[in-house]
């Protein structure tokens, strides 16, 4: 297995690598060290914290649900259909992956805000205002997180054997039946991984949320925006909230690791 000397790392690589590890891990250690462990239970049950946690979980789950309903079909179109301009379409829908979230928030505001193209129409026709509501939180999180799901599911679809879809067609299944009964079950692990990734991204969403939905406790204040606010007034609460988010992130990572490595190795 190991070549002689395979374990030895040259010094010019070892030093920067060690520094990188320290840089990535130390802040997390700092978080754990500075955590007010004695008053943790008290802090966690403080009304503001519970509220933000509940809203975060709810909105991230709703954003994931919306992403699944819209994103899986989009991934199918990108992977299977032969429509023109597919490459351009793929580039467009993955822009939110690299776009600074705050820019996304501003863009959403321009479209869905009271003066926005869609927003003004929504208000005139239905009396609905989106910005600074819980719905706005879900919209902002979906905008930022859905591309993760789309990219993950599209990859799974491309890797899946399309011949199974031919078989289904020869067995009397139209394309929708084939999608439901063959394609979707085949790519289920990819969809699940994409959904977890999407949920984690939605849970951590900050920039687009605070720009488009604001930071109102009870309606639009999620964990990340609560952390930001708390840091200015009560740093201990910020640390506690951060700990919760860290725990959720680690859990997500473990879940994905299990799925990915468990499925990838026969």
């Amino acid at each position: 297995m190991s070549r002689p000397g395979a374990g030895r790392v040259p010094l010019p690589l070892a030093v920067p690598a060690a520094l990188a590890v320290a840089f990535l891990v130390l802040p997390l250690v700092g978080l754990l060290v500075r955590a007010p462990w004695s008053s943790l239970g008290e802090q966690l049950t403080a009304p503001g914290v519970g509220q933000a946690l509940r809203l975060s979980l709810l909105s991230a789950t709703a954003a994931t649900a919306v992403s699944l309903v819209l994103g899986v079909p989009l991934a199918w179109v990108l992977a299977r259909s032969r429509i023109r301009g597919r490459t351009v379409l793929r580039a467009l829908v993955t822009v939110p992956l690299v776009l600074p979230p705050v820019v996304g928030g501003v863009a959403l505001f321009l479209v869905l805000g009271r003066q926005g193209i869609v927003g003004s129409w929504l208000e005139d026709a239905f009396g609905i205002t989106v910005p600074f509501t819980t719905a706005a939180v879900v919209v902002a999180q979906t905008f930022v997180a859905m591309p993760f799901l789309v990219v993950s599911v599209e990859g799974a679809l491309r890797a899946a054997d399309a011949r199974f879809e031919d078989v289904a067609a020869t067995l009397g299944a139209d394309r929708w039946t084939t999608f439901r009964r063959v394609t979707l079950p085949l790519v289920a692990p990819g969809v699940a991984a994409g959904a977890v990734l999407c949920w984690a991204r939605a849970l951590g969403e900050f920039g687009a949320t605070i720009t488009f939905a604001g930071n109102f406790p009870g309606t639009t204040q999620t964990m990340p925006t609560a952390v930001y606010l708390a840091l200015q007034s009560e740093p201990e609460a910020a640390v506690v909230l951060s700990l919760v988010l860290l725990a959720v992130s680690l859990a997500t990572l473990l879940l994905l690791r299990d799925r990915w490595l468990g499925r990838a190795t026969p």
Partner: peptide, 16 residues
């Protein structure tokens, strides 16, 4: 294809 009354067997069986 799904409207054609046919059966097809592929080289690799391709059972779902």
């Amino acid at each position: 294809p799904h409207r054609r009354p046919l059966g097809m067997v592929f080289q690799d069986a391709l059972l779902f």
